[in-house]
Design a protein around this nucleic acid. Structure first.
Length: 358
DNA sequence: AACAGATACAACCGCATCTTG
DNA sequence: CCAAGATGCGGTTGTATCTGT
């Protein structure tokens, strides 16, 4: 459709808004509300199209807008959200009260991108630039066209399910999950994908980012999945190319935006109960992102209600008991190889259990 | 002071989706 | 169900301002 139809019929003003125009629009909406935007210009006495009026109101005149520079916490939150949501500016803006998608987009393009690059982080992938550069073509996921999650969702996301299925590979790249050094093969005929191409990432703690020293920290969880070998194997699981499972233990990652580095930690594997038969496919990513967990507020107590994934009830209960994954991991000093080995074995056990329940 | 380039921000454009008759 | 209009979104462009020479 493109340009609003009224713009063709009438000679309408374009470009910057004058104070007089602002006043007319502000007065009209204050007194009457905007109603149908296409009728606003006429009712407000403006030579603009409704689309232009709407944009002016949303980005500039709205009374609840927060003015002034972005705080470091806001910038960190934007980076964090962008790593999950990509260029879904409106969704990012929804988590920063008083900020508009337009100004967040502008901030990203004019400032944050450069800062990340200066820290050696690729703003598209959120990976260290050195890793991005060494990521050869042969290692890229086959669905390379989906590798850039910064495309417009309108063109890349056909359905919720498609979106959900496509997100994991993007984030497995980002999180370099192979650091966990899973056993790539087991005597059960199962394999945990070493490159973690099916790894699913769930952000858990955006709302509870906290200051540790001068560092703003947030935590996210990474949920490995298991892929099955071809049907000719002796795998106890049959049917379908892949089975996705929720890991019995969740991995916490702390993002330290001050130095651009990532610190890995893994909760004590024995502290988490295995819940083998829940079906993560039930939860669509978009539903998750629209869940109450994400609604509006950017500051939320860690002890508040856990986020919504109905099939993850067991997990939620555990998360709510973890008061500080960061210091917990520091104290326990879980080194990656040992912990990941246990982690990997738990995954395999769970996969078998899952397969037998089918 | 004048100019050019960089930067930040405002606004537009085109597309997809939603709504309505 | 369909078509047209309305709305929302993200990419892009335009412009004012800043900064350095």
């Amino acid at each position: 459709m493109g340009r609003h139809s009224c713009c063709y019929k009438l000679k309408l003003r374009k470009g910057l808004w004058s104070p007089e125009e602002d006043e007319k629009l502000l007065n009209h909406i204050t007194n009457h509300g905007h109603g149908c935007w296409s009728s606003v210009p006429k009712l407000a006495g403006l030579q603009r199209c409704g689309k232009s009026c709407r944009l002016r109101w949303i980005n500039y005149l709205r009374p609840d807008l927060k003015r002034g520079a972005f705080s470091p916490e806001e910038e960190n939150l934007i980076v964090e959200l962008h790593s999950v949501l990509g260029n879904r500016w409106s969704q990012i803006a929804a988590r920063l009260p008083g900020r508009t998608d337009n100004e967040i987009k502008n901030l990203w393009n004019s400032s944050i991108k450069k800062k990340l690059k200066q820290r050696g982080i690729d703003p598209n992938t959120h990976k260290p630039i050195s890793e991005v550069e060494s990521f050869s073509d042969k290692d890229k996921p086959t669905r390379s066209s989906n590798n850039d999650h910064h495309k417009s969702p309108s063109s890349s996301v056909a359905t919720n399910q498609d979106f959900f299925l496509e997100r994991p590979s993007e984030f497995s790249d980002y999180f370099s999950f192979q650091k966990l050094n899973f056993n790539s093969n087991s005597n059960l005929g199962l394999s945990v994908t070493p490159e973690s191409s099916l790894c699913t990432m769930i952000p858990t703690q955006f709302s509870s980012g906290n200051m540790v020293g001068s560092v703003f920290q947030t935590q996210v969880c990474v949920k490995p999945s298991i892929s099955l070998p071809p049907d000719n194997s002796s795998s106890p699981i049959s049917g379908g190319d892949h089975v996705k499972l929720t890991a019995p233990n969740w991995e916490f990652q702390t993002n330290n935006f001050d130095n651009g580095g990532f610190t890995w930690s893994i909760p004590n594997p024995s502290s988490s109960a295995v819940k083998p038969n829940h079906n993560f496919e039930e939860v669509k990513w978009s539903e998750y992102l629209n869940s109450p967990f994400f609604n509006g507020s950017t500051v939320q107590s860690q002890n508040s209600q856990p986020f919504y994934i109905k099939s993850e009830a067991e997990y939620l209960a555990k998360v709510s008991n973890i008061t500080d994954p960061w210091s917990q991991s520091q104290n326990e000093n879980l080194s990656t190889p040992e912990a990941s080995d246990v982690f990997s074995k738990d995954l395999q056990r769970m996969a078998v259990s899952f397969g037998q329940s089918l």
